[in-house]
Simulated assay, not measured.
Amino acid sequence: MDIRHTIERLSATESIRDLLYHYSHLIDRGELAEVAELFADARYGQCDSDGVPVGVLIDRDPAGVLRANESFIRMYGDPPTPRTKHLTTNVRVTVADSNIEASSLAYVTVLQGTDELPLQPILTGRYFDRFALVDRQWRFTERLCCIDHVGNLSEHARRTLA
């Protein structure tokens, strides 16, 4: 590989990591409409432990992503936030040789603390993500979440996880 190709690959990796972290910041600030826009070009839903989709996926429908999040996440305060911290770790990014497509696998740990719930982990899982470079910007094309462990979701979830 030449140096330019390597630099493009490194730039892609860092841009994708930044996009992953941007999601965490938005969701923890309760900016659910902005979260939904991140997935405007993506399939979005749950998967099994191998990253195979399970259930119905939301397909390139930011309004559907917004409805799904609003119907699941409890909000607190003004401005409303879920009182969570999404910790995205162990991020592995794989950029295709073309440098215009990529995938990643990352761990997620969600912490929450409310007036009724002491600060604690409430969920761990993995994100199986795919990306494409669109107009010189990396975009999600798929986000699948595998939930590995569930703690006390009583202060977070409006409904039971499927």
Rank of each mutant, 00 (worst) to 15 (best):
A36C: 09
D148M: 10
E14R: 07
P79F: 01
D50H: 01
S104I: 13
D61E: 15
F131I: 00
C47R: 01
T160W: 10
T160C: 03
A106L: 12
E116N: 14
A12Y: 13
R159E: 02
A157F: 01
T114I: 12
S103T: 01
Q120G: 07
T81K: 11
T141L: 11
I7T: 14
A63C: 01
W138E: 03
R130E: 10
A102Q: 01
F131H: 03
L26C: 05
I58S: 13
T109Q: 15
Y44R: 06
I7D: 02
I100F: 08
P80K: 07
V110A: 15
T94Q: 04
A102D: 04
Q137F: 09
S11C: 02
P82H: 11
I27A: 14
P62T: 05
V108P: 01
E142Q: 08
A33S: 10
A162P: 13
S71Q: 03
R143Y: 09
S103P: 00
E37V: 08
I16N: 10
D2H: 08
L111E: 07
S15T: 11
H22I: 02
L119D: 09
V56W: 04
S24L: 14
D97I: 07
A42M: 13
N90C: 00
F140P: 01
R83H: 00
D115I: 03
P53G: 05
H156Q: 06
A106M: 06
P53K: 06
V95Q: 01
S71F: 15
A162G: 07
S11D: 12
L87G: 02
D135I: 03
F140H: 04
N99T: 04
H156L: 15
R74M: 07
A63N: 09
V95G: 09
S71D: 04
R130K: 08
P79V: 09
T141P: 10
T114Y: 11
R92Q: 03
G77M: 15
G151T: 03
L105A: 06
L123F: 05
Y21H: 02
D41L: 11
D48C: 02
D28L: 04
Q46I: 14
K85I: 14
S103Q: 00
V35S: 03
L161G: 02
E101I: 03
G51Y: 15
M1P: 06
R60N: 03
L144C: 12
L66D: 00
T6K: 14
Y23H: 08
N99W: 07
A36I: 04
T88W: 11
I100E: 09
Q137G: 04
S98T: 00
C47L: 02
R136M: 08
R92T: 07
I27K: 09
M75D: 02
T81F: 08
E70L: 12
R126I: 10
S11Q: 00
R159M: 09
C145D: 12
F72R: 03
